[in-house]
Design a protein around this nucleic acid. Sequence first.
DNA 1: TTGAAAGCGTTACCAT
DNA 2: ATGGTAACGCTTTCAA
Lengths: 347, 347
Amino acid sequence: MKSKTNSHSVRRPTSIDVAKVAGVSRATVAFVFNDRMRSMISSATQRKVFQAARKLGYHVDPVGRALSKGQSDEISFVESDPSELDPFVTMSWIRALQLRANDLNYSVGVHFLPEASKHRRERLTGIFARHQVGVILVGGSVTRAEVALARKMGVRVIVLFENQVGREISIRFPVEEMWQTAAKHLLERGHRSVAYLHREHLGPVSQSSLQRVVSSLHSVVDPAGGTLTELKMDPTPAGARAVVDALLAAPSHPTAICGFKDEYCFLIERELAKRGLRVPEDLAIICCSGDSRLCELSEPPLTSVTADLEAIAHNLVNIIDAVSHGKEPNPEWFVPPVPRLIVRASS
Amino acid sequence: MKSKTNSHSVRRPTSIDVAKVAGVSRATVAFVFNDRMRSMISSATQRKVFQAARKLGYHVDPVGRALSKGQSDEISFVESDPSELDPFVTMSWIRALQLRANDLNYSVGVHFLPEASKHRRERLTGIFARHQVGVILVGGSVTRAEVALARKMGVRVIVLFENQVGREISIRFPVEEMWQTAAKHLLERGHRSVAYLHREHLGPVSQSSLQRVVSSLHSVVDPAGGTLTELKMDPTPAGARAVVDALLAAPSHPTAICGFKDEYCFLIERELAKRGLRVPEDLAIICCSGDSRLCELSEPPLTSVTADLEAIAHNLVNIIDAVSHGKEPNPEWFVPPVPRLIVRASS
DNA sequence: TTGAAAGCGTTACCAT
DNA sequence: ATGGTAACGCTTTCAA
């Protein structure tokens, strides 16, 4: 490269320029802009350096820094099953991650990577090559081999979300706790025969997750002398009709439903209304996952259980930050937040 | 730095290693891994290099490349008014951008940056410092000064979305075309008195955008001898009630409504149902923006107009790619896609 | 507290 | 077609 920098591009000030203006060495400038080393420099010198930097409009070049340190400022968020999640949830996630990441001077790289994706491995390779601080691998379709790849490529911190592979760090949504919260609420309101509603077609991962949910529900309902019915539904009006048919067919049918998503509950409610059944008098409904717009729009508005996504994201970034510095992460960061019950009119 | 690389980190193969194994020079390796230069190398040599690389698990280090080229592989997506957009829309955006970006070997950095954000300028500085290929600035609250900052910091390609600042490259949603499409549809169905429905409280940017929408509507409705009524609404059940009241108060009220978002139309429909009014017989409704879940869930399902987000994202990445290479972007990439009308039962 | 200098992995120029 | 080699901007060690 002959000219100072790429042809027609703006020439940005470097630490050398700052050093010159401040009348110190490059090393000093570097020290001032490094949290770890700053304390080595007298505050008078620091001031000089900051002044010079401000005057020139200098900012540490993240690329140079990354190359030198062998680590970039990026935290990569890799979502493996983008279609499984509510876009609303994913967005909240990304936003919350970013909030905390920025506080700690990290940036967030977002990568959606469908399981089916032809070049999945290739793309993962590209992602893992970026010397990021840490990688958040979301979704059940992350395999052992993929985690091994990340390790081999030198990714320092790997955190799995909603998945467990070997002994890797892993955090989770308080899914079971959320269902339990819902069930307890219904029990408190006097319901004894409760149905839980989930999707008709489940992948193997969701399947096993459902198993855990069911047993956690039993652990709440059984001791109270309650009974639990399983309901499967397609998220369509026809699906809702079929479910309500099945529900009412039983001689002594459940008096309350825990639905796994707003959309399902919404459809059920409307189907009930059509048949002249009242919510919650004839049948109570509670929505166990997410608290999106639809819960409010439903009629009557849906009681729902949510988890504090922001708290999880906050913890996640904390974990990555700590581990990447070789520190022991605070055990509390692994504790899923206590689900929040939002009581509305449907229960 | 004494040891070969950061303490406990994995040592990744470099182009030197590959060169050694392949029995060629580093430059040759570099050429082989550079699309621009590959043609200089005999295919026999290329094969040798690729074999060595594969054997060692070598991948070009994006950080080293970025430093050397003075440009990273990142396209930054900066959303200034995250709350204004439907999360569904934002997600589709990001996903679509990423799809095209990956095809062209770029990566996507996502940054949400509320207008109110205290450190907004500081954060923008951090973002613009990353030597990215291009920046996509979304939203009306991007100011001239901010664009100037980007320029000053050497950002090569700046594309504004849904905003216009100076003579910067700018692309837009076909908002006006979408409303026109909706209006035409209603006229074709014989409606002559049409109302358009928008938000009660609008910021200055949305305000001026509304102006353009209104005049574009007139240009369609007036020649057909139709009349246009304005309706403002709060997106709540009470808001819907008020609007329907106002609507029916007029002696000869509109027979159709263009609503600006699914949520609004949904609420209106339900309010009408409560009063025993039929859709579309008594009042037709069409949803002018977005085609989210809610349109399907509404009863009757809402006819709606959508824009092909993926196409816009595709064009956007194409533009950045072209401009960053000093090429003239294809004019077609600036043409907003023709809106798509999805006829459902509400019209 | 500071200066000098050796990397980090890549690109691109200049020879050969 | 290929091999040296000087950037790129920063961090960090070692001496002073």
